[in-house]
Nucleic acid binder design. Structure first.
Lengths: 241, 241
DNA sequence: CGAACGCTTGAATCCAGTCAACCCCCGTGG
DNA sequence: CCACGGGGGTTGACTGGATTCAAGCGTTCG
């Protein structure tokens, strides 16, 4: 992925390749030194949790490398994954005392850890940051509401189609010609896809198998799916245009 | 409801009984005069739409009286209601060019209409407002994510139970002893409840009938439901605690 | 190597959707 | 006054899509 593997610990925000794609982009050159004092870059192991729902919301995290999922679990074990979160995003930023969701890593990666109190200090001096956070939250809200539609009003085939289209578009937008656009890297287990789309693992498996039989996709391996007929996928999701 | 029926048109924000329950509460006494210049109070007819998804997002609205629903419709007619919105809330506030959802009135009421550009001007001078908007968005996001869980991981009985519990709690919190706490005023058609919960009208009807047979509720009329056994409802939704 | 995990597939089940009929209420207009 | 129509709601019979349960396979990893 196109981001630097900075040393762990203190980093130099000025040299961060990702900064213009994140919330850090609001800072002027001279402000980045200040930002540096609040930020620490730390590695994250696949499967580990940055925080859990109910934990004290002390830190926000800017994702530098890797991929994460936000989710809520109820006491009978049912889980709903709210969103997958990719490099450049900020998570855990919160005006609440406690986190409202849990965050788990899908891959090894790096995050820039910053005190939420630090964000607050910075944003009191930087109107642009406030505005950016606003925009970010509005954007998150809209994405979440779109996903509500998927959960409430789509069938299994439509859910998986849209899921694949979204990943296809993401991969094309962010990597362009640098990767094979037709092979999607999906480091997400079936059970996580299921909990994201409001299905069971079996149903996810069956729809994938069905798409394969129809030659819409090819299942390369657990985490790679080749798109053979994007038009057909788009047709299935046409009503979401 | 406990809010003033101000004259239509220009209003005096200083005298608004609702102001401390809304985003307007951030303004100092002397700032309310400035706010006045941006705000206009207008009546809203039941069934009318304040705006539709895709409309130019020129105005935000603070709900003074009435009740509204936010929703998205797809081109094949399927609809998902995102949330119901009550007095004190602000809707349509947006950093985007266009609204991302539609807003329709469930009841006759009043809203305070304010230019989004005005909100922007005000918030550049008032850090508290920015912060309040942030809090509001974070709160909305959390509520939305909770509802995602309902849509993705609950069955029909749980959905209706939670729906009723939420209204019960809302009514008790906001009206306290002033109204009969057991009779819920639900000015929402079955089809709207269905589109909110990801069900069909028939299913909603059936669950209501089932609850009635179990003496959990009594259906007074179309828009009034009496809660006979709140404990049983809470038990059904126990996993959401 | 064995155990655990993740994934797939099949068969049976069931919950919610679909289709259809009917009711009630209410407003309208002859 | 009543007839009519339409919107909203309910109920029943049937259907079907997704879940559940169960078995089996391949891969990974201690």
């Amino acid at each position: 992925m196109g981001c630097i593997k900075a040393e762990v610990g203190k980093v130099n925000c000025k040299e961060c390749e990702l900064k213009d794609d994140t919330i850090c982009g609001v800072f002027k050159e001279y402000e980045l030194d200040l930002l540096n004092q609040f930020i620490e870059k730390i590695p994250v192991k696949k499967g580990s949790k940055l925080f859990k729902e109910g934990d004290k919301a002390d830190f926000a995290y800017i994702i530098s490398e890797g991929a994460f999922m936000k989710y809520k679990v109820h006491n009978d074990g049912r889980r709903q994954i709210m969103a997958f979160t990719m490099p450049g995003s900020i998570v855990g930023i919160s005006p609440f005392e406690e986190y409202k969701y849990s965050l788990q890593a899908l891959l090894d990666g790096y995050v820039c850890k910053i005190k939420n109190s630090g964000v607050e200090i910075l944003s009191e001096q930087n109107m642009e940051l406030q505005k950016k956070i606003n925009e970010f939250l509005s954007y998150e809200l809209d994405k979440t509401q779109d996903h509500m539609f998927v959960l409430g009003r789509s069938n299994a085939v439509e859910k998986i189609s849209l899921f694949l289209c979204n990943i296809y578009d993401y991969q094309n937008e962010y990597f362009g010609k640098r990767v094979n656009n037709d092979i999607l890297f999906i480091p997400i287990r079936r059970v996580d896809i299921a909990d994201y789309l409001g299905l069971t693992t079996e149903s996810v498996s069956r729809v994938f198998a069905d798409f394969k039989k129809q030659k819409i996709i090819d299942i390369v391996d657990r985490s790679h799916t080749r798109i053979l007929n994007i038009d057909k996928l788009r047709a299935i999701t046409a009503c979401y245009s």
